[in-house]
Amino acid sequence: MIPQIEIDKNKCPTPYECKKCLQICPQAIFAVAPTKVERFKETAPEDYEVQAVFKDKCVLCMDCVKVCPTGAIKIKVGGR
């Protein structure tokens, strides 16, 4: 079963600046990207979002949950 990995955007307002989960994950399942892009403008840090993408690769080591300074990451396995 693919785990459910939810990241609370309210608890993780500027993921690019923190990026702890992105760099600790042994399976590199996370991605951080801008939610909007404008001409002649760099996207503001708050307009970035981190998502768990390659979830089928997650081995449930929970390193990301432990490293997250705000407790924004919740992992659940399937329907259990």
């Binding site: 991605a31 990207a33 998502q51 993408v53 390659f54 979830k55």
Partner: peptide, 16 residues
């Protein structure tokens, strides 16, 4: 192109 992996998320959700 800038969202990269986000684009593939719906596909990966169906992996099982």
């Amino acid at each position: 192109e800038l969202q990269g992996p986000f684009y593939y998320k719906p596909l990966i959700e169906l992996k099982d």
